[in-house]
Design a protein around this nucleic acid. Structure first.
Lengths: 190, 190
DNA sequence: CAAAAAACTTACTTATTAGTAAGTAACTCT
DNA sequence: AGAGTTACTTACTAATAAGTAAGTTTTTTG
């Protein structure tokens, strides 16, 4: 099924994801990806027709990942707080590498993206939102979590705290992200 | 002091600001600005040596604006909630025009910016943060506002809710921003 | 082992970008 | 009225962007 390197496609996606999270979608080129992987830009075009296709594939990856995570969380006996901490973890990692989340990055470049990407990113957000919402609702029902807004609104508050938290941390420092993270968990615990 | 058009410089800043908030810093060119103002790209270079200088001037404008606002709020007898509402207002406007705030936009492109810009944006954030922080502390002291975190952390929570709120609204709709806005005010009041 | 398919490279093209040097028109000030 | 200044335009350059067509090498498969 493959010749020379069987997982160049995955490598391109990995680098593309890194670039989007570190520089932003409109600030890197196929030549940049190629350089990183010691190949020519045409090789990148071989695997992904254009930048749009690369971004679409990346979002698809995220959708798969979060669909899997959502299922895992549903059948898990971990506490609601534990589930939320598992959700927050990746943001903390991003912060460590001076990167921001894909959703925040794409949201910033939103008006330069083709319709196909806009639709797909929207469904990714609904997926993630739904997952957080459900975890929150469940935790509240069990008396484990405490908040007065609807689960949807509370999920929005958490998502925005995290997304902009990693963005802000780039400028004003990681300590600010850590404060946000800590406050978030504390507030939910009651 | 001028020939032909005396306020082209201000017009360029106006359009530049619009572009940054609508498309992002790395997604527009001097030619785009020139087209919008019916001139040539060289004319834009005449007023601002390069894109970096344009961005610097823009941030300077914001710093002036918020320094003024901070002073106005200090000597104002408006309630703390009233002050916060005045602070939130521009975000609501941005949301209406499918745009995001300058800070969020720059934060997303942060790693592509020259050091000079990084430093200046950082001082803008401290200015804004300080203003919100002070308003919060004051309101709490007067028994008008209620929150359990430090004023700094609470300011971070509000800032991130708003910054990412307008970003998310582009994708998932203005209703989500409105929910965030409403929840924010409600929580502080009660 | 031969043919086909996969994974590339070479070598372009076309468009856009930031930026500049030189010239020109209009206004200002003496 | 003439000189200088301001606000541009014209006309370029050099670099980078996305993308493609055609050829080459490597691997798989019948």
């Amino acid at each position: 099924m493959s010749a020379r390197n069987p997982d160049t496609k995955a490598e391109i996606l990995r680098i593309g994801k890194q670039f989007i999270q570190f520089y932003g979608y409109n600030a890197f080129s196929y030549a940049d990806i190629a350089r990183e992987l010691n190949m020519k830009n045409a090789a990148v075009h071989y695997h992904f027709r254009g930048k749009e296709d690369l971004l679409m594939a990346l979002i698809d990856n995220y959708i798969e990942t979060y669909q899997l995570l959502a299922k895992q969380l549903q059948h898990s006996k971990v506490s609601a707080i534990g589930k939320l901490e598992k959700f927050i973890e990746p943001y903390t990692m991003l912060c460590e590498s001076d990167s921001i989340c894909i959703i925040g990055s794409i949201a910033s470049d939103y008006n330069t993206l083709p319709e196909s990407v806009k639709v797909k990113i929207s469904s990714l957000i609904e997926l993630v939102m739904g997952m957080v919402e459900q975890t929150l609702a469940e935790g509240k029902k069990l008396g484990e979590l405490h908040f007065s807004e609807t689960a949807r609104t509370q999920a929005l508050l958490i998502m925005t705290n995290l997304a902009a938290g990693v963005q802000l941390a780039r400028i004003s420092g990681k300590k600010d992200y850590m404060s946000i993270r800590k406050a978030l968990i504390k507030q939910l615990k009651g």
